[in-house]
């Protein structure tokens, strides 16, 4: 397989992940499913950035017995994604905590129901 085809493959795969995640995020009726879409989008972005740093036939950027391999992949996107994954789980935890709190106060996580409730609250405020 040529490197060109491989890079095509990674672009298509990461774009597909981002698109699937976005579709889930926009079209879901349940808040937790929308958050699941967010994690899929994150996975797509991570795959894209790591694949940018990849070079054909390159070794991981780690010295073995004090000797660095001759051709290595770019370590910078890897360091970036390493922190991005951990930040992602922190943000996901916060979002889930907010969702849990919303469920405690509203009794539901169904977005249409929450939207209707917010609208009726708005119109009540307008009438007052």
């Amino acid at each position: 397989m040529t490197p060109d085809l491989l890079s095509h493959l990674f672009s298509i795969a990461s774009a597909a992940l981002v698109a699937i995640g976005l579709f889930m995020l926009v079209r879901s009726h349940y808040l937790l499913r929308a958050l699941l879409g967010l994690t899929l989008m994150e996975a797509g972005v991570n795959l894209f950035l790591v694949s940018v740093g990849y070079r054909e036939g390159a070794a991981p950027p780690i010295a073995i017995d004090g000797q660095l391999p001759a051709v290595m992949v770019d370590p910078i996107p890897q360091a970036l994604i390493l922190t991005a994954i951990v930040i992602g789980v922190g943000v996901l935890g916060l979002a889930l905590a907010l969702a849990l709190r919303l469920h405690q106060s509203e009794g539901t996580l169904w977005l249409p129901r929450l939207r209707r409730r917010a609208q009726s609250a708005c119109s009540k405020e307008d009438a007052a």
Partner: peptide, 21 residues
């Protein structure tokens, strides 16, 4: 939404092509 998402995906693919080269 489906059409929008597919269009966005295609746009992303074309944008991403440049970064690999």
């Amino acid at each position: 939404s489906l059409i929008f998402t597919v269009g966005l995906g295609l746009m992303l693919v074309s944008l991403m092509q440049g970064s690999h080269t």
